[in-house]
Amino acid sequence: MDSPAIATGNGEVLAEAHAHPAHLRHHFETVEQQRDAASFGMWLFLLTEVMFFGGMFMAYLVYRNWYHPAFVAGCNTLNIWLGTINTVVLICSSLTMAMAVYSAEMRRKKSLITYLILTIVLGIAFLGIKSVEYAEKFELHHVPGASFSIEQFVHPTNPKAVALAPDMAEKTQVYFSLYFAMTGMHALHMIIGITILLILVVRAFGGAYTDGHMTTIENFGLYWHFVDIIWIFLFPLLYLISRYR
């Protein structure tokens, strides 16, 4: 840094070498400004994520109304209990993440690490349950493109299920395409999140984030909660269509 001084708004001159906290990057004037900028930037990024998933929600809305019987039939092949358990798991992980942010705020290193690891465990549990569900889809030939058969929808073995006309049964492919695209994109975000969490844990062991500079952990918390919110919408949209039949 060449400049010896920073003039603040009211003309007060601070000797920079002394008034410069360790985590303040040179182009910010104050720590608050840096923190605000970081969380604003994170929120803008989440805005792009909203629109990223928004395109798929839009597609869902159109096709659900077009092919409602196919969506009902497709939905009823999903395991609602695994879906509910996954929702609970994810909400728990959101709680542990929120508590991790709180621990960082309180500068408690041990509890920060504990909560981060809990979040990772819950995240992996979610993915584990999800992969069980995915495997089942392959067995039932409900994966568009890879292995798909409309047999179960035209001649259902389950006596309670409603048989679809072959034409409408074909449309279950749209439901499963969206199911895989949306949950797959969500799972991808979970995987990215867990990877970042692992890095955060390692750095938290080294004493990071509990020294008053916790922007990273705060912003990651925002990301993790956002992924949770996406699931909060995916769950009723994909698992809870006309379950009463």
């Binding site: 803008l44 805005l47 792009t48 994520e49 909203v50 629109m51 990223f52 998933f53 928004g54 395109g55 798929m56 597609a59 568009p144 493109g145 890879a146 492919q173 749209v174 499963f176 395409s177 969206l178 895989f180 695209a181 994109m185």
Partner: peptide, 24 residues
């Protein structure tokens, strides 16, 4: 910020449709 992600997901769906055959 608001427009580009919609293009991104659209192109992802096109790519998925070409590669693994989903049907959006």
């Amino acid at each position: 910020v608001l427009g580009t992600p919609v293009l991104a997901i659209t192109l992802v769906l096109v790519a998925l449709e070409r590669t693994i055959g989903i049907g959006v």
